[in-house]
């Protein structure tokens, strides 16, 4: 009981402290400055955050676009196509992948992927590299939750579908996937919150230049990356602005995870 109270209070303490630290930025420069300032030069009090917010959106969406089809396809593999042993082995592989530290993904991205993606006029540290690394990191989340959702589809449905003479692809795509859609969507939302919040791997491959992500080969800096790069030397006003952006990130994560629970239709079980 007491423990539960303390655990719950943790969340509110986190929120409280973020607000406390962000308060100066929210009042004196004001939220609108994040949109209307001409650039991000925190040392000279210019706090335009839109390029970084756009970079976060671009990396997150890009990673989802890559990871969702592959992840769902691999879940169909586990449920409908894999021999039992292969399915188990593959699931184990996904669990291992989910456990790999983000710095290892980042290091691999930096040492292997970035040189591969380097081309004319850019180093390979850019939006596309960040998207690829992020996609790999959220793949296990999408795949494991989709596989769990497909596993939860009642066997009787699949038997009834087979009794109608539906072929394996039809059973998988027209019956099982629609029946599992809530679970799959919840998994995608969880993956989204993971992608939003990932920091180190992105910092290591994204190039970290504050600019609009108008091309895949443009170096970008995400909101999370910005926190990791700048908190170390931030003065009071700057620090407060950084906390304000952390607060926004947290809100986004809270919204997406709450949505995931609603979509899953299992608020309390």
């Amino acid at each position: 009981m007491t423990a539960a109270a303390i655990s719950t209070v943790t969340l509110f303490v986190v929120v409280l402290f973020l607000i406390r630290e962000a308060f100066p930025a929210l009042t004196s420069p004001g939220l609108h400055r994040f949109l209307t300032d001409e650039s991000w030069h925190p040392l000279s009090n210019r706090f335009r955050m839109t390029p970084m917010a756009a970079a976060t959106a671009a990396t997150t969406l890009g990673a989802l676009v890559l990871a969702v089809p592959v992840g769902v396809a691999s879940a169909v593999f586990v449920r409908f196509y894999a021999p039992a042993a292969a399915g188990r082995a593959f699931r184990g592989l996904l669990e291992l992948m989910a456990g790999i530290p983000s710095v290892v993904f980042g290091l691999w991205g930096l040492l292997v992927l970035v040189p591969l993606l380097a081309g004319h006029g850019h180093s390979g540290q850019h939006l596309l590299a960040a998207i690829c690394v992020l996609a790999l990191m959220i793949l296990p989340v999408v795949a494991l939750s989709a596989a769990a959702a497909l596993n939860a589809v009642p066997e009787s449905l699949l038997v009834a579908a087979a009794a109608l003479g539906l072929s394996r692809p039809s059973v998988a795509l027209r019956i099982a996937l629609p029946a599992a859609r809530r679970g799959i969507a919840a998994g995608i939302l969880l993956a989204l919150s993971r992608a939003l919040g990932e920091t180190m791997a992105v910092v290591m491959v994204a190039g970290n230049v504050v600019q609009f992500p108008d091309s895949l080969t443009r170096p970008v800096r995400t909101l999370t990356g910005n926190l990791a790069l700048e908190l170390g030397y931030a003065g009071p006003a700057h620090r407060s602005v950084l906390f304000a952006s952390a607060l926004m990130l947290m809100l986004a994560a809270a919204v997406s995870v709450s949505l995931a629970r609603v979509v899953e239709g299992r608020p309390d079980e």
């Binding site: 509110f12 402290f17 973020l18 919040g197 926190l227 952390a246 995870v257 709450s258 629970r261 309390d268």
Partner: peptide
């Protein structure tokens, strides 16, 4: 206590989704 349990669960779900760098900032501040 089921309503309380629902609140606890929700707050844990949100806590699990908070970006780790945000925890870093929070830890730094507190």
């Amino acid at each position: 206590w089921s309503a309380a349990a629902a609140v606890v669960r929700w707050s844990l779900d949100v806590l699990a989704a908070v970006p780790s760098i945000v925890f870093g900032l929070f830890g730094n501040a507190l």
